[in-house]
Every structure is written in structure tokens, then in C-alpha cells.
């Protein structure tokens, strides 16, 4: 189910699974308890209810345990998020422009594309900007997403070591063709990336200012 595609994928999945596992345990617990009580104490079997005093120890327990667990979930979520904000200085800077309903990418040398190509192992920072309404830049496989606004520049970063093609979607409703606002990021072998970059830049009459080895 999970493809470990970026530096964030494993951690986000782990936190998600941690919360899911705890939740499932408790959900099964309360569901079984409910069903058991309904059957065991049905009016036919148990015509006379028994008064049960409120029990302070129990109440403290079921306040304290969730509190500790919830704070641990908070903590893991926060730690994972900190990594997402900790952008390496040497990241490849890509300007991403959203408009209804397409994406475009600009490399440091001015090269513009409508699909993103980067090399495996290369940290990438995207600067997000919109020319019309709000959008959101979403790479599901990388577990990254950020809203894209017309009046401010948001950013996010990722690094992928796994060669392949990954979908980029728009996740903020932006009108008629919102669901068609897909493009992709291609993670390439460093040598392939260099070749592609050189060739495409040359075709556009631009200097290739970086190589995958730079990272």
C-alpha cells in the first residue's frame, strides 16, 4: 500500500500507522464492549439493573491514558512537520506557478517546463505562486502539500531517491477543471537528469547552470 517515494513518506506513514493502530485497538474495544453489554445485560437476561457508583479511579485513568497517548501523537506529528520545514540550503530552487488549470515550473537558469524533472537524491525546494485563485500543490506519493496563493509565496521541499514518475495534483478547489489539474514529477538517474537538463536548456538557448552532482 505504501510506496516509500520521498524522504517524508516513511515518517508520515509511521505516524499514521501509529495513530491508526491505537485507534483500532480502542475502537474494537469499545465496540466489543457495547455489543457484549447489549447482549449480556439485555432486559430479557437482566431485568433488574444494578446501580454502579461513579468510580474516581476509573475516571482519572481514562482521562490520563488518552492524554498521554494524544500528546505522543501530537509530538510525533510535530517532529515530522519540523523536518518538512527544515529546508536544506543546497536545495534546487524551482519556481512553481499555478493558474487555472495548469502548473508550470521554472529552473534557476530560466528554463520553463510543464512537467517537473529532478535527479534522484537531489533536495528540491519549490516556491509556490498562483496567478489567479488559490490552488494547492500536492504530491501524494511524497506526502507533501502546500496551498498556493496569488498574494504570497509558499514553499515546500522534498528529496526522492527512487527513480520514477509521481503525480502532482491540485488539492484546493479552483473551479471547473480542478480535477484535471494534474502534472507529474519525474525522478531521474543523475546522469539522465544531466543529459536531459543540458539538452533542454540548450534547445531553449539557456545556460545549464547546475548538474545533479552539485547537490
Amino acid at each position: 500500500m505504501f510506496s516509500s517515494a520521498s524522504n517524508f513518506t516513511d515518517n508520515v506513514d509511521a505516524v499514521f500507522l501509529y495513530i491508526t493502530a491505537l485507534s483500532l485497538i480502542v475502537l474494537v474495544g469499545i465496540t466489543v464492549a457495547m455489543i457484549y453489554f447489549v447482549i449480556r445485560y439485555s432486559r430479557k437476561r437482566n431485568p433488574v439493573p444494578t446501580h454502579v457508583e461513579e468510580n474516581l479511579a476509573l475516571e482519572v485513568l481514562w482521562t490520563a491514558i488518552p492524554l498521554v497517548l494524544f500528546l505522543s501523537m501530537f509530538y510525533f506529528g510535530w517532529v515530522g512537520y519540523k523536518d518538512m520545514r527544515n529546508i536544506p540550503d543546497n536545495a534546487l530552487q524551482i519556481k512553481v506557478t499555478a493558474r487555472m488549470w495548469q502548473w508550470s515550473f521554472e529552473y534557476p537558469n530560466g528554463l520553463k517546463t510543464d512537467t517537473l524533472y529532478v535527479a534522484a537524491g537531489m533536495p528540491v525546494r519549490t516556491e509556490l505562486h498562483s496567478t489567479d485563485v488559490s490552488h494547492a500543490f500536492f504530491i501524494p506519493a511524497f506526502r507533501v502539500k502546500k496551498d498556493v496563493y496569488p498574494n504570497k509565496v509558499n514553499d515546500l521541499w522534498f528529496q526522492s531517491d527512487k527513480v520514477g514518475r509521481y503525480d502532482i495534483a491540485c488539492a484546493e478547489y479552483c473551479g471547473l477543471n480542478h480535477s484535471g489539474m494534474y502534472t507529474a514529477v519525474h525522478i531521474m538517474e543523475p546522469a539522465d537528469f544531466d543529459a536531459w537538463y543540458k539538452a533542454t536548456s540548450a534547445k531553449a538557448g539557456l545556460q545549464p547552470l547546475l548538474t545533479a552532482a552539485v547537490k
Binding site: 508520515v12 505516524v15 480502542v26 494524544f70 510525533f76 510535530w78 515530522g80 518538512m84
Partner: peptide, 21 residues
């Protein structure tokens, strides 16, 4: 309860980023 549990998943920052919208 399911709504609440999935709310916890959405409340965790790193997971929220992925699941939002």
C-alpha cells in the same frame, strides 16, 4: 468514535499535510 479517531490523524501535523483536502 471513528470520526474522532480520524480527527486525531488529521490533528497530527505531518499527517495532516498529506491528508488535507
Amino acid at each position: 468514535a471513528i470520526g474522532g479517531f480520524t480527527g486525531l490523524m488529521l490533528g497530527a501535523l505531518s499527517v495532516n499535510i498529506h491528508l488535507q483536502d
